[in-house]
Amino acid sequence: MTALGLYTFAGAGLFALGFWAVAVRAHLVWKVFAINIMGSGVFLILLSTPARGDPAQADPVPQAMVLTGIVVAVAATAVALGMALRVVARTGRPFLPEEGDLETRE
C-alpha cells in the first residue's frame, strides 16, 4: 500500500465517521463538527488521488479546489453555528425538536 492510498482510505474513513456522527448526535454543535470532519475527509480523497499526469508532480487542480473548499467550509460553519445559537436562544436547548412538536400548532 502506498502512502497516498493510505490517505485516501483515511479520507473515506473520516467521511464515514462524520456521516455517522451527524446522524446519531442530536447536539447541533456536534453536527457541525461532524460536517466539518466529512468535508476534510473529501479533501483528503481529492488530494491523495493524483489522477492526472505524473503522480510525483503535485496536481494544482485539487489544491485549488481544496483551498476553495476550506473557505466555503469556514463560511458554512459560521452560518451553522450562528443559527444553532439562535435555536438555543429561542428554544433553550441545543437540539432540533422532533418534527411536529412545534410546527403543527396553529
Partner: peptide, 12 residues
C-alpha cells in the same frame, strides 16, 4: 473555525 467553535462554547 476553532475560534468559531470556542465562541459557540462560551455562548452555550
Amino acid at each position: 473555525t476553532g475560534a468559531l467553535f470556542l465562541n459557540a462554547y462560551k455562548r452555550l
